[in-house]
Simulated assay, not measured.
Amino acid sequence: MVKQIVLANAPTGFPITEMGKAESTFEIKQVALPDLKDNQLLLQTVFISNDPAQRLWLQQNRNSERAYMPHIPLGELMRASSVARVLKSTSPSFKEGTMVQFFGGWAEQLVVDAEDADPLPDLPGVGPSVFLGAVGVPGLTAYFGLKEICQLGEGQVIIISGAAGATGNVAVQLAKHVFKASKVIAIAGSDEKCQWLEKIGADHALNYKAPAFSDALVEAARPSYADCYFDNVGGPVLNACFSAVKRNGCIAACGSVSGYNNDSSQMALSNWGEVIINRLTVKGFVVMDYYHRRSEAVEVLSSAIKEGKLTIAGGETIVRCPDFEKIPDVWMRLFRGENTGKLVTQVADFYSW
């Protein structure tokens, strides 16, 4: 029997992570795993990815026809990208002990088809958790957002919100050091995070909680204003950025984390007139649309790490979680701004790989 955390109740605001209450969002189940069939793997979860989008997967009242990923049914495993170690294998492609990445969940162990797991690429000098962050979905999101949506060119100006997060910090570094933007304006939620962002590539880093944030943003964008705004948060920050993007500029709509835990709210976009007056293009995107080009992004991201253009130091928060029932509490750190860079939960030890 192994432990798994499943969805017990769909939250209407912030999830209730304390187990055992009638209204708890999650509950722990003891599950008997099936015997391996041909070409299957028994995986021991080592690292679990924490992502804001997981909050959207809990909604039971969303129109599934319009969702990029179906919601998690009540009683089903909480999904998450994961890095795991192969405990047993009936596949000729995987040996026991191999470290793999797969789309798993909050589970001690899982049985999966071998075709659903990818062996970790060889990237000396970094730990396997990086494949959930800078070289994982957040890194791919940053790369394709800059390349395909922003179409960022050398010498251009870009604004990036949620810049101290998993996707944002990679976007800042790629924009400055790989795409060679002339000015990168980063937005985060604390002075400490802003100081870190300036160390890794931001020309200006602004705390959106500061009283004069909107004025400081426009001043930082002048005189040319920004060619593109890479939006990870939505809400008031998006509203402020409308005034800082140049005429015929672009807004890459990547996330709206500011509203994920407030189902009844509407994003107040009183500045929407800027979109019309300045002929702005707002384009949403989901990284899954580009996943068939994953190898392209991994090559660029891996090269950037090797060349010192993309640093992992300070851009990853790993929380060791020996108490399995505390996994949801670690995830909730995302929504309290308690992490810098990628937030990863470690639930087991790993060995040399």
Results as ranks from 00 to 15, higher is better:
Pro73Val: 09
Tyr68Arg: 06
Phe102Asp: 00
Asn61Met: 14
Met69Gln: 13
Ala107Trp: 02
Leu110Ser: 06
Ser81Lys: 02
Arg79Trp: 00
Pro70Trp: 07
Met99Ser: 11
Pro128Ser: 12
Met99Val: 13
Glu96Tyr: 08
Val126Met: 05
Arg55Tyr: 11
Glu76His: 14
Phe102Gly: 00
Arg66Gly: 09
Phe102Cys: 03
Ser64Thr: 15
Lys95Phe: 14
Ala114Cys: 10
Met78Pro: 02
Leu123Thr: 07
Ser49Trp: 00
Asn50Lys: 07
Ser129Pro: 06
Pro121Tyr: 09
Glu76Trp: 12
Met78Cys: 08
Glu108Asp: 04
Lys88Trp: 14
Leu58Met: 15
Asp118His: 15
Ala107Tyr: 03
Ser82Glu: 10
Pro70His: 06
Asn50Pro: 07
Pro128Thr: 07
Gly125Glu: 07
Met99Cys: 12
Gly105Val: 02
Ala114Gln: 05
Val112Tyr: 08
Val100Ala: 02
Thr90Arg: 05
Gly125Trp: 12
Ala107Glu: 09
Val126Cys: 05
Asn61Gly: 11
Met78Gln: 10
Ala114Thr: 07
Gln54Trp: 03
Val126His: 02
Asp118Ser: 15
Ser129Gly: 13
Arg62Tyr: 14
Pro124Ala: 07
Thr90Leu: 08
Ser89Leu: 07
Leu56Lys: 11
Gly127His: 10
Phe102Thr: 00
Gly125Val: 09
Gln60Asn: 11
Trp57Asp: 06
Ala67Asn: 06
Trp106Met: 03
Ala107Leu: 05
Pro73His: 08
Leu56Ile: 07
Gly75Ile: 07
Arg55Ile: 08
Gln109Ser: 09
Gly105Pro: 01
Tyr68Lys: 04
Val111Gln: 05
Phe102Pro: 00
Ser129Gln: 15
Leu58Asn: 04
Gln60Trp: 06
Ser89Trp: 03
Leu77Ile: 14
Pro73Cys: 09
Ala53Cys: 08
Leu56Pro: 01
Asn61Tyr: 15
Gly125Ala: 10
Gln101Arg: 13
Glu65Gln: 14
Val86Met: 06
Val130Pro: 01
Leu110Met: 13
Pro124Gly: 03
Asp118Ile: 15
Pro119Ala: 14
Pro128Lys: 09
Asp113Tyr: 14
Leu56Gly: 03
Tyr68Ile: 10
Leu87Gly: 03
Val112Ser: 06
Val83Arg: 01
Arg79Asn: 01
